[in-house]
């Protein structure tokens, strides 16, 4: 299958200048390699602090990996300069883990959702607004709240605003960093269905970050498991769920609530 994204041996270290001058380094990613097929979904599962968000930022071109290479849509994006990255970024959209911080509290829902189009200079003002309103409807935000400011929405509603605006650019790759975790079951199902529908219609590719194996099994074709900055296990969703090789994977599967585990049968590749 055609690979939309290939990540090769990337490593990310954060340097932190210490008070006394001694430089402390945190290795967030170490020798991470995997790829995602065009139009498929890869779930990335791992415990807190395993480097999932860092990986998402590197792929979305918002952090530079310390070393290694990322190929997106047959272009090596790790060698691009800032100006060229501006062209690539809209095609890879990241829904941030914490929408309270990724949505400017001064902006209204409508402004937030039409901002990507405004930045890209796509459509005129009226069309942008119509498009934004349609997106708000798709993620289940009532029209009368369109002018409400970001800080006046609940956590789950903000999460949906974040998803709506990431979708507004119709990216080739959408990275969802724990984007459904804060939603209740019915809304979760509604968004999951929307995502699957879009994938079917537009051929979107998803990198779905979660710590919830049930969700991963339900949505993803493949599952990758991370531990301490490394990808320790990767494979088809039913294989990873059925015959986990790693201790972490078993631990994470064991932690998953029984009921939902049976309710969601793994999706075939």
């Amino acid at each position: 299958m055609d690979r939309l994204l290939i990540v090769e041996k990337i490593e990310k270290r954060y340097g932190r200048a210490h008070v006394l001058g001694a430089k402390q380094e945190v290795t967030a990613l170490l020798d991470v390699s995997f790829s995602i097929g065009r139009g498929s979904t890869l779930a990335l599962v791992g415990e807190s602090g395993s480097g999932k968000s860092t990986l998402a930022l590197c792929i979305a071109c918002l952090e530079r990996p310390t070393s290694g290479k990322i190929v997106f849509n047959r272009n090596e994006i790790t060698v691009l300069d800032e100006k060229q990255l501006r062209e690539v970024r809209p095609q890879i959209q990241l829904v941030f883990q914490d929408p309270a911080r990724s949505l400017n509290p001064r902006f209204s829902a409508l402004e937030l959702v039409s901002e990507p189009l405004l930045v890209q200079g796509r459509l005129d003002k009226r069309e942008r607004e119509a498009r934004a309103r349609a997106l708000l409807g798709q993620v289940g935000i009532p029209q009368e709240k369109a002018l409400q400011r970001a800080e006046e929405f609940s956590g789950g509603q903000r999460q949906r605003l974040a998803i709506a605006r990431a979708l507004s650019l119709e990216p080739k790759l959408l990275i969802l960093d724990e984007a459904l975790s804060a939603l209740d079951c019915s809304v979760q199902a509604q968004i999951a269905n929307l995502l699957m529908e879009l994938q079917g219609r537009l051929g979107l590719t998803y990198l779905f970050i979660t710590h919830d194996f049930a969700m991963a099994g339900h949505l993803a074709h493949e599952i990758a498991v991370m531990e301490q900055g490394r990808v320790v296990e990767i494979g088809a969703a039913d294989e990873v769920l059925g015959t986990p090789n790693q201790e972490v994977t078993r631990r994470l599967i064991a932690a998953m609530p029984r009921l939902t585990a049976e309710a969601h049968a793994p999706r075939a590749v």
């Binding site: 918002l62 501006r86 970024r89 809209p90 959209q93 990241l94 941030f96 990724s102 400017n104 930045v119």
Partner: peptide, 22 residues
Amino acid sequence: ERDFVRAARGFGATDSYLLRRH
């Protein structure tokens, strides 16, 4: 370094837009 600035950068925003709006 705020997330909403990063998010806007992710939409392809230029430096002047980020400064002006965020």
